[in-house]
Design a protein around this nucleic acid. Structure first.
Lengths: 194, 194
DNA sequence: GTCTATACTTGGATAGAC
DNA sequence: GTCTATCCAAGTATAGAC
């Protein structure tokens, strides 16, 4: 279920709108009525494609994670050194945030996690673990090759960077001229690049 | 309005429960009914103390910000150097997070900000600005005294650290053994302490 | 696949007795 | 200050026609 190929055009439009709503107002901040209006369909029609709100949320996160995984592969291929890769990674978040100050889907759901269905939290954890694993790998390689240096291990640095990216988007929503996730990453990386 | 001295004992209990709910499930994740059950009072009685949910939310944030300001004064007085002060500051968030993985009140509300009443967002922005101003001052002083060093200015470093702290709590909710805001700060500060 | 209609529940808020 | 009772709107979900 929720294989991207299996999503009909209507289901895709619904998922698009639902994702934007999650990134904008959060899972608890939107209803089927909001989707209905944005997509030009009645509430009952939404239920035809996603029987429950949880189903819709799970589909959105799974698709989001899949697309993120594709981006991770591209970042690895397009750049050589660890610092360059990490900045390209930060730009994924920068692009998201520049789009109407959207938060990361899983950043938003992570904040709301204590009020979400277990099925949703499972997907959110998977997203974060995937990102932490990828970051740890890139950082570990950077340390081994001498482009990065720190007294802390790769896993710790990975979680620190991911936390910084998510937090920069969150805080950025409430300050007048936010530095944004890209620049925040530059500040952090300045302390560990060689 | 919302002066702490003016809060009756019942209003205090309601505000306590409301704050914990915000930090746990978010503003959009709780209702007057939840408060009613936790505090052992009927919904109508809650409305007697806070006429609307927005009023209650504003009172919670204002009180939270005031208490945070007190803590900032104490941190300044209790520690000398900028690095020590910043770690003591990080411990404010560490303590919050260790309490049942509670998020910062304004971290949560910041995530939800696009669905909140303007009166609430005003208070959230004030909280962040207060923290950024305090951090910038401490960092600026640290740079001037030679205990901190960076190619970035104090304001940028302040927003980076605050973002990291908020993000560490958010991400920490979705990982098995989170490093937490305190340790995340240590990782970042390692790159700018002399 | 989409619609109308509707059932059922919850949420925010008010009136008025005690 | 707290209660019961109630209103109205919104939210999730289903039934059944087209």
């Amino acid at each position: 279920m929720s294989n991207p190929i299996e999503l009909s055009p209507s289901a895709m439009r619904i998922a698009d709108v639902a994702q934007a709503l999650v990134q904008n107002v959060g899972y608890n901040g939107f209803s089927f009525e909001h989707i209905s209006q944005a997509v030009g369909m009645r509430k009952a029609s939404i239920h035809h494609h996603f029987s429950t709100k949880v189903d819709l949320g799970v589909a959105v996160v799974q698709r989001y994670t899949r697309e993120f995984e594709q981006a991770l592969l591209q970042v690895r291929n397009a750049s050589e050194s660890a610092p360059t890769r990490l900045l390209a990674y930060a730009d994924l978040f920068e692009t998201t945030f520049k789009n109407n100050q959207h938060l990361c889907v899983c950043g938003m759901l992570g904040a709301e996690s204590n009020s979400l269905d277990a099925a949703l939290n499972t997907e959110v954890k998977r997203f974060f673990q995937t990102n932490l694993d990828w970051l740890s790998g890139v950082i570990q390689e950077g340390i081994a090759r001498g482009s990065l240096r720190s007294q802390h291990d790769a896993n710790t640095l990975a979680e620190t960077l991911l936390s910084l990216l998510e937090g920069a988007m969150l805080v950025g929503r409430s300050v007048a001229a936010p530095i944004g996730p890209r620049r925040a990453s530059e500040v952090f990386l300045a302390g560990i690049v060689c």
